[in-house]
């Protein structure tokens, strides 16, 4: 019965203006694979929808001056998969984004939507955190940057200010010997929500891990950057002892709940198992780079 306005501005400035003036009735629409589902179930009832897919900056994949990448927040997973270089540099992040949903969902779903939806189980988020991605935000008071791990505030909530839009993700340049990986535990093989998700990004030099970042999803109210796990890996040759220490760090970082998707005991244990497996995949990839 409530009226719904749909806007599809061509510029970011217009989008910010429209979104800010809509106040709490406003919603950003990227792929809509969360938003439309939530609207149909009655969980959210927006008055104004601001579609950001007509804004060039938000759908672009660009190299940065220092050799990294900038990815528009609304780029769908399928488009990212077709990029000639992105998957080579960030295979883990790409596999995380491409794990979202199905072929049909991939045609729409974006990493930006995945992050802004605020689910602790969003698949791309641990990989973005591990990648050290920086989020660029634009709001009524201008632009600012934020580490991806600082964006989520809790289930369904973010630290974006009223009227702020996530514009893009910036990924750092890749030193030689770097790669990443993402694994999630789901009871089925697809179309499921992560019970635990682990992203590992590392750099190897002569078989020794010189840098590492670990993102851990679905085990706490927000996706976690697990520095203790990274520390356990750095300086090691990813031998059993180092992996075991990193796995323990992941399990220790878990603050999960018992719910229909998994028990505390199960999630805690699995976080460690996945860390080991993910780190080994990332290392295997890094060795070839």
């Amino acid at each position: 019965m409530t009226e719904l306005r749909y806007l599809a501005p061509a510029t970011l400035d217009e989008a910010v203006k429209a979104f800010a003036s809509a106040g709490s009735a406003g919603r950003i629409l990227a792929g809509g694979t969360d938003l439309l589902v939530q609207m149909r179930s009655g969980a959210v009832k927006p008055g104004v929808i601001v579609d950001i897919k007509k804004i060039t900056e938000m759908t672009a994949i660009e190299p940065t001056a220092d050799g990294g990448f900038r990815i528009g927040a609304a780029v769908p997973g399928a488009v990212l998969a077709e990029h000639p270089h992105f998957g080579k540099a960030w295979p883990g992040l790409l596999e995380a984004i491409n794990l979202i949903g199905s072929t049909q969902v991939q045609g729409r779903a974006s990493a930006g939507g995945n992050l802004c939806n605020g689910s602790p189980a969003g698949d791309s988020v641990p990989a973005l955190v591990a990648a050290g991605a920086i989020a660029t935000l634009q709001g009524p008071n201008g632009r600012r940057e934020m580490k991806v791990e600082d964006v989520p505030a809790g289930p369904g909530r973010t630290n974006l200010l009223p009227g702020e839009i996530l514009v893009s993700f910036t990924l750092p340049p890749r030193p030689k010997g770097s790669s990443d990986a993402y694994l999630r535990m789901i009871p089925r093989t697809e179309m499921d929500i992560a019970v635990v998700g682990v992203g590992v990004n590392l750099t190897l030099k002569d078989g020794v891990c010189t840098a590492a970042r670990v993102g851990l999803g679905a085990v706490a109210p927000t996706v976690l950057l697990v520095e203790a796990a990274a520390k356990a890996l750095i300086g090691s040759k990813l031998d059993d002892a180092a992996l075991k220490a990193a796995a323990s760090a992941c399990s220790a970082a878990c603050r999960p709940i018992d719910d229909k998707r998994g028990t505390i005991v199960y999630r805690t244990r699995v976080a460690g198992v996945l860390l080991k497996r993910t780190a080994l995949i990332a290392a295997r990839r890094a060795a070839g780079n």
Binding site: R188, E190, M191, I193
Partner: peptide, 16 residues
């Protein structure tokens, strides 16, 4: 019932 949908009521999907 806490899982009244096909997301959390886990019937096998084809790839399973």
């Amino acid at each position: 019932v806490d899982n009244p949908g096909f997301l959390d009521y886990r019937m096998p999907v084809c790839s399973d």
